[in-house]
């Protein structure tokens, strides 16, 4: 039996050395490894062997089988490699059949990023009416009629008491009226101002509003939260700067700048040579606002902030004309994949 196996090996490798193509290889495969091939027949003979011989011979035969399989497979690969290129070559430079991806509007992208960042800090998302009472849009925000700040927010009116909201800040009061503290909300959406259209103004735009009210909320918390937001949305290398600002519904008031990405704060045309880009207004919620919403001003403090989504998108993506957001040109939209 041992002798027989040795002959088998010798013969197989001799034949293998002389084969020239895959057809011959297939023939050898059938001859040796086929269902009724030589190896199979020899395996059948094992049954007639003594119990001591059986496992040893069985193992040797299986080894032979594995070796043959391996040799044939290797040879087959060699043939395949040789033959490739001889078959019809496809022009793999031809474009694939495209799936034509859809896109999210860049403003939606900014709203989503922002919401996600703040949700990570425990804020929840609330929606409010776009057609709003003058009371919530102005009065409850410490902006009575004839307040000079109203000049900067020329409004579209429906009736003398109802207007298209000029800011998302009315949601501060609406939220506080509807729930007791603590509060941590983000409210984003469309706002409207009677501004003539040019490359930095459209009569409709989007704002993102944030409000946090609790015991012991401080200006330092506002700085921490906003700094974190700016890092996440603009990148870790950008510096955030806080300076005094004026909005009637906050006190102290804050303006937030980020360092200009083009000049790294050295000053260039895009940042008006200041090295800084204004991105949002913020501050500690004015006690009058807390009081009008029915909160105990002795117990609770809070901060609020608001920013223009178009402005953030323009800075983040380098868009130079706000009108592009509402023209809905596919050559524009297609860039926000």
């Amino acid at each position: 039996m041992d002798k027989e196996m040795e002959n088998l090996r010798e013969k197989f490798f001799k034949k293998m050395a002389s084969i020239k193509n895959r057809e011959e290889l297939q023939r050898i495969r059938n001859e040796y490894l086929g269902r009724k091939g030589i190896v199979a027949q020899m395996l059948k003979k094992i049954t007639s062997l003594s119990p001591e011989e059986k496992p040893r011979i069985g193992e040797l035969l299986n080894k032979i089988k594995r070796d043959f399989q391996k040799t044939i497979a290797e040879k087959d690969n060699d043939f395949l490699a040789e033959n490739s290129g001889k078959e019809e070559q496809v022009d793999i430079s031809i474009p694939g059949r495209n799936f034509m991806l859809g896109t999210t509007h860049p403003i939606e992208l900014i709203l989503k990023y922002t919401e996600e960042i703040f949700m990570g800090m425990g804020f929840c998302i609330v929606d409010g009416p776009e057609i709003e009472l003058d009371y919530y849009n102005f009065e409850a925000l410490n902006i009575p009629k004839d307040h000079p700040v109203r000049d900067d927010q020329d409004s579209f009116y429906i009736t003398p008491d109802i207007l298209l909201r000029t800011q998302t800040s009315p949601m501060q009061v609406r939220t506080m009226e509807s729930q007791p503290p603590p509060v941590r909300i983000i409210s984003a959406g469309k706002c409207y101002r009677r501004d003539s259209i040019d490359n930095t103004h459209t009569p409709m735009f989007h704002q993102i509003e944030g409000l946090a009210v609790d015991k012991d909320i401080s200006l330092a918390d506002l700085k921490g939260v906003i700094t974190e937001f700016c890092k996440q949305i603009f990148g870790k290398d950008r510096i955030t700067r806080f300076r005094p600002g004026y909005f009637p519904f906050v006190e102290p008031g804050v303006e937030v700048d980020v360092s200009c990405q083009l000049c790294q704060g050295l000053g260039c045309q895009s940042c008006g040579y200041s090295g800084w880009l204004e991105i949002m207004g913020a501050g500690m919620v004015h006690p009058n606002v807390l009081e009008m919403a029915g909160y105990n001003v002795e117990k609770y403090t809070g901060f609020a902030f608001g920013m223009g989504a178009e402005r953030i998108a323009m800075l983040k993506y380098g868009i130079n004309d706000i009108r592009l957001f509402f023209e809905n040109d596919l050559r524009f939209l297609n860039q926000f994949k």
Binding site: S218, L219, A220, K223, G224, E228, F242, R243
Partner: peptide, 11 residues
Amino acid sequence: YENIPSTLFKA
């Protein structure tokens, strides 16, 4: 304002 620290919510 630059001399005020940055913190995150306590609660």
